Amino acid sequence: MTNNRRQILQLALTGLAAGMPLIGRAQSIENLKIISGFAAGGTVDTLARRLATHLAGPYAKSAIVDTRAGAGGQIAISALKTSVPDGGSLLVTPMSMLGIYPHTYKKLPYDPLTDLTPVSLGVVFDMGFAVGPMVPATVKTVPEFLEWCKANPNNANFGSPAPGSVPHFVGELIGRAGKVDMRHVGFRGSQPAILDLIGGQIAAVSAPVGEFLQHLSGGKVRLLATTGTTRNKFVPGTGTLIEQGMKDMVFGEWFGFYLPGKASADVVAKANAAIRAALADKDVVSGLAAMGLEAKSSSPAELAAILKTDTEKWGPIVKAIGFTAES
């Protein structure tokens, strides 16, 4: 037997011993980048870093978070779009950038359906609406905040992590429910908005519930309401918008993981399996819960279906509000 034939036979036997055919085996990934479009310290960043820690080893030899903040998450999505579809680049993004932005931007630098390949859900969560030192401590509910806004129109404002996002529209709908014209201030993520809230530069912030948790004990941030059908398990002492008389004001969101649009089925399957395993880890679940996030994975097909449903849901809401990225 020649040396070449011996090498071929040895490689074939190695493949069989590993429990899979040699041909078509997934290539090992050296370096994984999890691309995030929002500032460090927030909920998107938390999910990205938790997963990076647990994907380093089982999925890739090393894993880092690549923060591309700006343009309401669009820079990060554009970065994934141009990445090699070999599984070495994953995007974690809120639904807003994929399901709402198509209704608010005449032209996006990406197509959510062709430039991205769904992999798995990451987390689900409710929104929260909070006030800071600018608002008197006597204001303890959203209706009371709206009355305060009417009496202080120059300070009737709220911040959100990005214009055209779910938190932005929650704030807009709260204002409309109370017949108050609240000025919206868009930020590059929730934490920069909350820092301005604590500093007294803005009156209120609409953001994922988990973004507020680390700030509540100090007393400078007061959570007035959450947006679920029932009280949020992470802040059970805070009433929902429905409890406070705002009918049909139920809104949640999710963060999902995506690969570039041309990723193969094998690459998607490998990434999905690794993410699902990581999200089932007890340390990951508890770590995300500390940020008000409920770990939840899915199949790629399930994620695609969820995005389709949310895209269709938000179209009429955006139209009714009349918001466009140019407005």
Rank of each mutant, 00 (worst) to 15 (best):
K61G: 14
K61Q: 15
K61E: 15
K61A: 14
K61D: 15
K61W: 02
S62L: 05
S62V: 04
S62I: 04
A63F: 02
A63K: 00
I64T: 14
I64R: 09
I64W: 09
I64L: 08
I64F: 11
V65N: 05
V65E: 08
V65Y: 01
V65R: 08
V65T: 11
D66L: 06
D66G: 00
D66W: 06
T67L: 10
T67M: 13
T67K: 05
T67A: 11
R68H: 15
R68A: 07
R68C: 08
A69N: 08
A69G: 05
A69H: 07
A69E: 14
G70I: 01
G70F: 11
A71F: 12
A71I: 01
A71E: 15
A71C: 06
A71P: 01
A71N: 14
G72L: 02
G73C: 12
G73I: 13
G73A: 10
G73L: 12
G73N: 09
Q74S: 10
Q74A: 14
Q74F: 01
I75A: 15
I75C: 08
I75Q: 14
I75T: 15
A76S: 11
A76I: 02
A76Q: 02
A76N: 03
A76H: 08
I77Y: 10
I77G: 09
I77V: 15
S78V: 00
S78G: 14
A79C: 04
L80G: 10
L80T: 08
L80P: 03
K81S: 07
T82R: 12
S83Y: 07
S83M: 06
S83I: 00
V84M: 12
V84C: 08
P85C: 02
P85L: 03
P85Q: 06
P85A: 10
P85Y: 05
D86M: 02
D86L: 00
D86G: 01
G87T: 05
G87C: 09
G87W: 02
S89P: 03
S89Y: 00
L90P: 04
L90W: 13
L90F: 10
L91T: 03
L91Y: 09
L91S: 09
L91H: 12
V92W: 02
V92R: 02
T93C: 15
T93E: 15
T93F: 11
T93Q: 15
T93N: 13
P94R: 03
P94A: 13
P94M: 11
P94T: 10
P94L: 06
